[in-house]
Nucleic acid binder design. Structure first.
Lengths: 114, 114
DNA sequence: TTATAATATATAGTTATTCTATGTATGTTT
DNA sequence: AAACATACATAGAATAACTATATATTATAA
């Protein structure tokens, strides 16, 4: 995600939300899904994704299992029970933060117009 | 802004927007205004604000002048012409990014409800 | 009167996160 | 044969925000 640095701090929430929503996914699949769902706007890099996934693993909010399909190993990442709690918390917190930022960006000089 | 790290990447846009909207402000005033406008949710720290302001100065999107009120020096930060252009760009980009994130966070399984 | 809080500035150093660049390996298409 | 897509991953750089600290004045509270 080079095109804007707004992603910082939101990446793990987005990934966690995606895994909660779609079920277990493997890394490469996550990058494609985020790219597709964002209309090619958010291009997740491996150098961002894998460290983020490893942190979530060590935090106990994800776990992994592997499958081999056509000689290619896939490492699936899935949400743990505590991860589900965290997902709800973080999603709510991010949406709250977003609404605050939207208010801050809305020019008060324009409010008052009918 | 310790309570959530979502701020990362958005701080300078918020400050730039605020200065564009309210006119020149001094550092301490900015922290109070952001705190107040955000309903005490975003608590800007000096260690975050002043480095951010200095970066914007060196980028040429802000300039400063000083005033002394009751023996206290105030360093006012104001938006340059190129800063006005940047403000419009960054604000639009942030709002676009926000709408993408909102879409990503919206569970597609829930869409379809009336 | 002394201490604390509010006003006002700012920096040094730490931590955390994302990115660039790179590396491995297989299968498919040109 | 080369390039591209699939699939993993890491090392090191860059950046941004934070904690903690420092200075100084004025106002308030104990």
């Amino acid at each position: 995600m080079n095109q804007h640095e707004f992603i910082k701090g939101t990446l793990s929430t987005i990934v966690l939300r995606l895994l909660s929503d779609k079920g277990p996914m493997y890394g490469y699949e996550i990058t494609r899904e985020v790219r597709q769902r964002s209309g090619e706007k958010i291009l997740l890099k491996e150098g961002s994704l894998y460290p983020a996934l490893r942190k979530m693993l060590s935090d106990g909010i994800l776990y992994t299992y592997t499958e081999t399909v056509e000689n290619r190993t896939r490492v699936y990442y899935a949400v743990t029970d505590s991860g589900k709690v965290r997902e709800a918390e973080q999603t709510t917190a991010l949406l709250n933060f977003i609404s605050i930022v939207e208010e801050l960006l809305n020019p008060p000089t324009q409010s008052g117009y009918a």
